[in-house]
């Protein structure tokens, strides 16, 4: 267990270092998960796990019956698999800029800073009034949205 924890820590530090080097570019985890993609991507784009903290994701995965006003409930096996995937690939809880008490990615300091325009948020200037609709502005493929 200690070895696993140590490896995780080193990996996390490595990711943090990479993120800094690349100016926190948003990317999808190297680990792929088909269930995460299909379930989270059914009603909206499957948002990159790093956009929220692990703690935020876990809170969200506990209340899927009330997912921002909609029922996104899953069978328990699927819920656990996706929760574990987000646990491994979400932002560390210490990354406050990736955390939002509302659990909305669009409310995180990171998202807000990256989308801040001179006076009006970017998505308002482009006429897109749903900031969660990434592909409305980010036309690239799912893998390279940012």
């Amino acid at each position: 267990m200690r070895t696993t924890a140590l490896v995780s820590l080193v990996a996390a530090l490595g990711v943090a270092a990479c993120a800094t080097q690349h100016r926190e570019r948003v990317s999808l985890p190297a680990e792929k998960n088909a269930l995460w993609r299909s379930e989270c991507g059914a009603c909206h784009q499957a948002f990159p796990p790093m956009m929220l903290t692990v703690g935020n994701w876990q809170a969200m995965m506990r209340e899927l019956e009330q997912h921002f006003g909609e029922d996104a409930s899953l069978d328990e096996a699927s819920r656990q698999e996706i929760a574990a995937y987000l646990q491994r690939n979400g932002a560390p809880d210490s990354y406050g800029r990736h955390s939002a008490s509302s659990l909305r990615i669009t409310d995180t300091a990171y998202f807000q800073r990256r989308h801040k325009g001179s006076s009006v948020p970017l998505w308002r200037r482009t006429g897109e009034n749903k900031p969660s609709n990434c592909p409305a502005c980010h036309k690239a493929s799912d893998e390279q949205l940012w």
């Binding site: 009603c43 784009q45 909609e70 749903k130 609709n133």
Partner: peptide, 8 residues
């Protein structure tokens, strides 16, 4: 169709 909330 189009999702009424997310526009997907």
């Amino acid at each position: 169709g189009q999702h009424v909330t997310t526009s997907k």
